[in-house]
Amino acid sequence: MKSLFFFIIIALGSTFLINVVHAFDERMAMPAQKRALSTAMPLNEVPQVMQGVSIKEKLGDTLDLNLTFTDQDGKVTKISDMLANGKPVILTLNYYRCTTLCSIQLINFAKSLHEMNWPIGKDFRAVTVSFDPTDTPDIAKQRQQEYIKLTNQEQGDWKFYIGNEENIKKLTDQIGFYYRYDPASKEFAHAAAIFFITPDAKISSYLYGISYKSRDVKFALMDASKNKIGSAADQVLLTCFHYNSTTGKYDAFAMGMLRIAASITVLLLILILGYFFWREKRKKVN
């Protein structure tokens, strides 16, 4: 009975630990959420062509559903059509003549989709929109065929769009994607990120850089779908990570890990206590 009493005390302590974890999680912001970027180059030191080039997050803002773009097959499509059937969208903003930053970004994005191995079009769509109004459906078609091969899903729903200058500007402003055209080089200066849009056209998250962990892409899609997609294992793993809007990545979340560990501990203790109760009852019967 002393052993039984000991395990009861541990179980009560573990329950208290879970309550403490939840209280900490709800009342205190994680340090990463408070951190601000402080390494920006002074404006007067930034090359002129790069001044104003940035991405300013507009999390929770809603895109204009009536903006229209033309896909690689010449079909005019509204934003509302891209978000049809309640599917979230991964959006990339590029221009199709770019052979440097855009190409590297799209190659790495395609590889992430390949590694993720979720059917493109089943639970989500991938969309690339050119911010160069001179791009044509023909070049969009070439780029689509080039990059979708890398996903190993050549029938996947990843469309490449072009648009007029007015609609492009409205979309990029709503996303917070700011770029500049350099007449000298006839190229665009721009940053790199992918954007996750909910089925109701709200901006859910940003992943920065030219390469993306398939894990982060999965998590961002799960967030954008309000956890309607993803396996049970993915859902459990997501509780151990949180979206850090400062870094634009999913960071390990100590509270989530601790919560799961505490829950597993309590479950094991319940099983042990059940065994002791069963053994004591058996002794009395004998």
Rank of each mutant, 00 (worst) to 15 (best):
S211E: 11
L258V: 14
Y250S: 04
L221K: 01
V217H: 02
I260T: 09
I210A: 05
I270T: 14
K202A: 15
H242N: 10
T265L: 14
D216E: 15
Y208W: 04
S204H: 06
L268G: 06
A254L: 14
L258H: 02
A254E: 05
G248F: 03
L238E: 07
K218A: 09
L269D: 02
C240H: 09
I229Y: 05
K249P: 00
K202E: 11
T239A: 14
Y250P: 01
Q235P: 04
I203M: 05
V217M: 12
L238I: 03
Q235E: 13
Y250I: 00
A220K: 01
A224T: 06
L258R: 04
K249D: 08
T265P: 00
C240W: 00
H242S: 08
D223P: 00
G248K: 07
R215V: 07
A232L: 12
G209P: 09
D251I: 00
A254H: 05
I264H: 02
I210M: 11
Y275H: 11
K213H: 10
T246H: 13
S245N: 12
M222H: 06
C240N: 11
F219Y: 14
S205I: 05
I210S: 09
N227A: 12
L267S: 13
A233F: 08
I272G: 01
L207R: 02
Y243E: 01
V266N: 09
L271E: 08
T239P: 02
Y208D: 04
L221R: 00
D216T: 01
K218I: 00
L207F: 01
A261E: 03
K218P: 00
V266M: 12
T239G: 11
K228R: 15
I270F: 11
A262R: 07
L237S: 11
K228H: 12
S211K: 08
N244E: 12
M257F: 09
I210L: 09
F253D: 10
K226A: 14
T239K: 14
K202N: 12
K228C: 07
K249R: 15
F253C: 07
G256N: 06
D216S: 12
A252V: 13
S231H: 09
D234R: 04
I229S: 02
Y275W: 13
Y243I: 05
L207V: 06
G274E: 07
L273K: 02
L237G: 00
V236W: 04
V266A: 09
G230F: 04
Y243R: 05
T247A: 12
N227M: 13
M222L: 10
L267E: 05
Y206A: 09
H242R: 14
I203R: 01
A252R: 11
I272L: 15
F253Y: 15
S225M: 10
L271Y: 08
V266L: 15
S225V: 06
Y212K: 00
A224H: 06
S204W: 03
V217Y: 01
S211M: 04
K202L: 12
L207Q: 03
Y206L: 07
V266W: 08
L271H: 05
Y212A: 02
V217R: 01
M222Y: 03
A252K: 09
